[in-house]
């Protein structure tokens, strides 16, 4: 059970959160302009590093707000939280 710092609520147990995967993957400005391969990458391909990872969490059993955190996927250490 990791201890996450919600930017709005402070330290809360991991069970209050839901994971949202890699941060910073924007919805394409014009999906029609993408090839099938590019669209497929948007849909399915995400980074999967062993180490620091900018990822999204939502405080689903709390304020229900999303935020981005940098977490080390090997140590589970949170390096940075930001809305």
């Amino acid at each position: 059970m990791q201890l996450l710092t919600c930017p709005w609520c402070g330290d809360r147990e991991e069970a209050e959160f839901r994971y949202g995967g890699q941060a910073g993957v924007p919805y394409p400005a014009d999906p029609r302009a993408l090839s099938d391969a590019e669209w497929g990458r948007y849909l399915f391909v995400r980074d999967n590093p062993a180490g620091p990872f900018a990822e999204r969490w939502v405080h689903s059993a709390g304020c229900r707000r999303w935020f981005t955190a940098v977490r080390d996927t090997v140590t589970h250490e949170f390096l940075r939280e930001a809305p």
């Binding site: 949202g20 924007p26 689903s60 707000r65 999303w66």
Partner: peptide
């Protein structure tokens, strides 16, 4: 609800 919130808040 979660899914709609996700679009609203993150996109």
């Amino acid at each position: 609800l979660d899914w709609l919130e996700e679009w609203l808040q993150t996109e």
